[in-house]
Design a protein around this nucleic acid. Structure first.
Lengths: 202, 202
DNA sequence: TTATAATGAGTGAGCACTCACTCACAACCG
DNA sequence: CGGTTGTGAGTGAGTGCTCACTCATTATAA
């Protein structure tokens, strides 16, 4: 129940902190069950607030869920952007690193992984689907550009169609989640990412 | 509402027919919405029977859903087995054909595709997850054997790890669904499957 | 007529969301 | 400084509705 406001009242950002705390708690709940089965009562309990409070921060359960999606997407996009920036002049390497970075993320955050797997599925709600499409498109376009660049520099076979290669790469995110869920051993092999990328790059 | 029994009462198999008709109708419904949102009332209406009747054929909504899963899995496995048999002595070609066969299936049956996409997601129900795992494992093992065989015959690079290659291949089913949903044009290209397989095989 | 199948109104549990109320605290006042 | 008042985040019992499943009744087949 969290007796509030030990320390200085930081006044500003106070509200945002709490919002984020609610989001993090709800990601846990959504990854344990699923959107429909996660009741607002459960969400509130995990966040340590009353049901009413949730509605002070989010207009509806759906919007709360989308806020959770966006939180994770932001985390991922930040990582990706950092990688692309660092390896700007080694396109092929940057792809491998992005893949590795994604794998690290889902291995280190099983909760987020379960949540993601869930998002990938619940695409039969219009709003959830839009969210997913947006995220995948951003990723695909970036990868497509990198593939073209890699081919221009002769680092990658010309037989690979950039657009389809990008789909392949991004669709692979789902494969990685499946593997992490169903075949942990394989994923923990330190050379896993090399082997995984072999069809594409070797 | 379907005024029943025009034609002879085939007496035997009559019951199975009706069961299958219910399954087919329910696949439609489940693919339009999702498991939770598909109400028993909707399922009954689409099947042209009363709610009570459904419970004469299936003990619960969940079992009905699993029956839908199994129906589609059977359809796919039948196709695959036929392909593997036909191309037994051309392992690499058989993989391409299986991929093509899957693609054809989801292109010809958008309903089943949506249903499948949904199954891939709702893996947070223990029973649904088991069903999915079973199906993927059967597929993966088959593909892994074929990859090994193809490598033995020198049709496929040795740099590809058979187990991971199989994961890649089977996980790709999901990518194909995503593409069919989000980028129909690409999928309709007559040379699509060649391009799609290029990373792996070329 | 009897046995079997089909029906759909009814039931009770569970859910998202609301709203009248509380109370810690800040701001102002004499 | 103590006292008064205003504020709004927080609360949780209550509300109206939806849904999976049942079962008494009706239709059909043998």
């Amino acid at each position: 129940m969290e007796v509030g406001n030990r320390g200085k009242p930081s006044r500003h950002g106070e509200r945002d902190d709490r919002r984020t705390r609610i989001i993090l708690a709800c990601i846990k709940v959504f990854s344990r069950t699923n959107y429909e089965k996660a009741t607002t009562a459960m969400l509130a309990r995990e966040a340590g607030v009353a049901e009413g409070t949730i509605y002070k921060y989010f207009p509806s359960k759906k919007e709360l869920f989308l806020a959770c999606c966006r939180y994770i997407e932001d985390q991922l996009l930040q990582r990706y952007r950092a990688v692309y920036r660092e390896y700007r002049d080694q396109p092929l390497e940057s792809l491998k690193r992005v893949g590795q970075s994604y794998l690290d993320f889902i291995r280190e955050n099983p909760t987020m992984r379960k949540f993601l797997a869930f998002v990938l599925n619940n695409s039969y709600d219009e709003d959830f689907l839009r969210e997913l499409e947006g995220f995948l498109t951003v990723n695909r376009m970036a990868v497509e550009e990198v593939i073209k660049e890699a081919q221009k520099r002769g680092e990658l076979r010309e037989t690979i169609d950039p657009k389809i290669g990008a789909w392949f790469f991004v669709g692979g995110y789902f494969t990685l989640i499946l593997m992490a869920e169903m075949d942990e051993e394989a994923v923990n092999d330190p050379h896993f990412m090399d082997k995984y990328m072999a069809p594409m790059f070797s």
